[in-house]
């Protein structure tokens, strides 16, 4: 189940630029995957599946938000200007851009934040257990 949900969330994420979807909703679905896992097998197991600590995810997310804003400064443009890079690769055009980095940041922040909140709520559910 977790694999399907994460795949679905990535699908939503990449669909996001031109159609409904994007970092925020993708992140929500991704966080949902780990939350379901935590409800089924406990937070410890879910943390193991997640591998990275959720707060680190938030930090990495914030970092990519800043980086996406700072990249245009190197080409003498204003902060947060959208920059696009088109790569021909195997017949398809890959669109790499600063909005993409920004959206990855949003995705990571949403997953990190929701998972942190849910985990700390789960862990404090039973009095005396924390």
């Amino acid at each position: 189940m977790i694999g399907v949900l994460v795949l679905f969330s990535l699908f939503l994420f990449f669909r996001g630029h031109d159609e409904p979807g994007g970092g925020f909703i993708g992140g929500l679905v991704g966080a949902g995957a780990f939350t379901l896992y935590a409800i089924a097998f406990g937070t410890e197991a879910s943390k193991k599946v997640l591998r990275i600590h959720p707060i680190t995810l938030i930090a990495l997310g914030l970092l990519s938000l800043v980086i996406s804003g700072l990249i245009p400064l190197f080409t003498n443009d204003a902060f947060l200007t959208g920059k696009w890079l088109f790569l021909e690769f195997g017949g398809t055009v890959w669109k790499l851009s600063t909005p993409l980095i920004f959206d990855i940041g949003v995705y990571l922040c949403v997953v990190g934040f929701i998972v942190t909140a849910i985990f700390s709520l789960e862990e404090q559910k039973l009095p005396g257990k924390s």
């Binding site: 707060i55 680190t56 938030i58 930090a59 990495l60 914030l62 970092l63 800043v66």
Partner: peptide, 8 residues
């Protein structure tokens, strides 16, 4: 940036 690095 500082906040992020400190968080990491």
């Amino acid at each position: 940036i500082t906040a992020t690095v400190a968080l990491l």
